[in-house]
Design a protein around this nucleic acid. Structure first.
Length: 152
DNA sequence: GCCAACGTTGGC
DNA sequence: GCCAACGTTGGC
C-alpha cells in the first residue's frame, strides 16, 4: 500500500465538500499535469491513503485523510466542451487525462500547516516542501506519513 | 495582488 | 531540438 498527498483549494473543493458528498466520495477531476496524471493512472491503488491538503488559502496545510476507492480511469471532464476542464486535443480512444475516486476517511484533529512541515528536519526530501514544487498529487514516503501523523 | 518557479506551446 | 513567450500554481 502506498501513501499520497493531494492538493485542493478549499474555496473550490475542500475537505468539508468531500465529507458532504454522497458516500463521501468524489472523482478527483481536473488534474492537468502529466506527472500527477501518471501517478493516478499507473500507481494509485484501491486502499491507498492520501492526505487532503488545502492550498492557496489563508493557512495552507494538511487537514484530513482520504482513501483511494477507485483506481485510475479517464477523467470525463476532458470531453465536456462546456466545462472548464475540456481538452479539445484529447482523443476519446486514447484519453489524455486520468483520475481516481477518493473517499473521506477522517479529518485531522488540527491543521498541520505548511509552515510547520517546512521546519521539520525529519521531512527532508518530502516533495511538498521542496522549493518551487507545484505538483498537485505526490507520493509520501511511509516514514514521512507516520511522522506527519505523529504531529497531530 | 505580486511574483518566483515551473510546465507547455509553438516558431524556427 | 532549442528556446522565448506565455500560462499556471500557490505561497506570501
Amino acid at each position: 500500500m502506498n501513501y499520497w498527498l493531494m492538493k485542493s483549494e478549499p474555496d473550490v473543493f475542500g475537505i468539508d465538500d468531500l465529507e458532504q458528498r454522497p458516500n463521501q466520495t468524489e472523482p478527483w477531476d481536473g488534474v492537468r499535469n502529466y506527472q500527477a496524471r501518471n501517478m493516478m493512472r499507473d500507481e494509485m491503488q484501491v486502499g491507498d491513503l492520501a492526505f487532503f491538503y488545502h492550498s492557496n488559502c489563508t493557512v495552507p496545510g494538511i487537514v484530513g485523510i482520504m482513501e483511494i476507492t477507485k483506481a485510475g480511469y479517464p477523467d470525463p471532464t476532458q470531453f465536456d466542451p462546456e466545462g472548464k476542464y475540456f481538452d479539445p486535443k484529447s482523443d476519446p480512444d486514447n484519453p489524455r487525462w486520468y483520475l481516481v475516486d477518493v473517499t473521506f476517511k477522517r479529518r485531522l484533529s488540527r491543521t498541520i500547516t505548511l509552515a510547520e512541515l517546512k521546519e521539520r528536519p525529519e521531512l527532508e526530501g518530502f516533495p511538498l516542501i521542496r522549493r518551487g514544487n507545484r505538483l498537485s498529487v505526490m507520493p509520501v514516503a511511509k516514514e514521512h506519513w507516520d511522522f506527519i501523523l505523529s504531529l497531530e
